[in-house]
Amino acid sequence: MGVEVKVEGLTKSFGRQVIWSDVSLTLPAGEISVLLGPSGTGKSVFLKNLIGLLKPDRGSITIQGNDLTKLSERKLYEVRKLFGVLFQDGALFGSMNLYDNIAFPLREHTRKSESEVKRIVDDKMEMVGLAGTERKLPGEISGGMRKRAGLARALVLDPEIVLVDEPDSGLDPVRTAYINQLFVDLNQQIGATFLIVTHDVNTARTVPDNIGLLYRRHLAMFGPREMLLSSEEPVVRQFLNAQRQGPIGMSEEKDVGELEAERQAGYEMPPLPPIALQLLPTDGQVRAGQRPPGAWCQANGVTPPPGSFQDPPGVAGSAGNARHAQSSGWTKPAGRADDDTLALPRVEG
């Protein structure tokens, strides 16, 4: 099972350049979290701090009672075994075939026999849909297959925390959809805590249990996915709608003059897109971290964007979401208009 990761007051800079400061969040054990943010906001730097490849200026990272920022190299080496990491390009050794790439951590960090290594590698390759490709070299396969091979390697030591850096980088939307489903299925199978860094808005809208947004050298927000997906913060609306107009500029945030020019031009940001139903495991079962659709909005008195929690046209209703809503006894908020495009899902009986 996954473990909780608690980050408090984390600050990182390179020389005089502050990357982000006073970042605090908790990754709930066994749940999938996503970290969003414009390019250059230090999302990958945050992952490197989590596993101790970089040392923060101040703050703490607590896992199983250990503050990683204060551990000796020997102890940090042991705690790192809790992690599996999928890098942007898979980070495979080009001269090794897929089998040897995936077996590498087992041979490096354990004393398992080659028969045990083979059993584990075969199992992980089947888990990510790569059975039968053991002898192929990284240069002989597609980008999506390299990602999956990197994921299999990240899983061979049975990690309790899986960090994923830009899984959609270099992939088309169809392959991105496949790998998103794979993350959800793996989370269901192994129960690990996942943190996915991404720019892909569709991934953020459907995959995670929790979402965070890095912006202007700090963590703008972090919490249940409905909190961010229903937020009226300008930076959130701009990011989710992929618009030029708003506080995010080409390099960093826009200056006051640019924002004033947009205001005088009468530009109004489009409304937030509807909150999609959460992606379910392939077997249709309820996710470990799943909450009833609209539960956070209801509990916090927030009206979700119109059309939220509805299946897309031509898609059958989500039985898993319905079962989860019914088992929780969740009902429509009192006093709401009975409009299917606005109302949260209802539970009859």
Rank of each mutant, 00 (worst) to 15 (best):
V256H: 01
A265N: 00
V23Y: 01
S308T: 14
K6P: 04
K43A: 14
P313Y: 03
E108Q: 11
L106S: 06
R323K: 11
L342P: 01
A265E: 02
Q188C: 01
G314V: 03
Y267F: 15
G170K: 09
G223E: 11
T69I: 03
P306G: 04
A295S: 14
T341D: 07
D311G: 07
E31L: 00
P159K: 02
Q238K: 05
T41F: 07
M227D: 08
A337L: 06
A154K: 00
K254L: 12
G249N: 05
G9Q: 13
V18I: 14
G349A: 13
R74V: 13
V117W: 03
M250P: 06
G15Q: 07
D165G: 07
P105F: 02
S44Q: 05
V207G: 02
L259E: 10
Q243V: 12
D57K: 12
R225Y: 13
P234Y: 08
I179Q: 10
T198P: 12
N187S: 10
T282P: 08
Y215I: 11
F14G: 06
K124L: 02
A220L: 15
N300L: 05
T133R: 14
K136R: 15
N97R: 02
V45I: 14
R146Y: 05
K81W: 07
R16K: 13
N241Q: 09
E348F: 11
W296P: 04
V164Y: 04
F87R: 11
V45G: 07
V347G: 15
G170F: 06
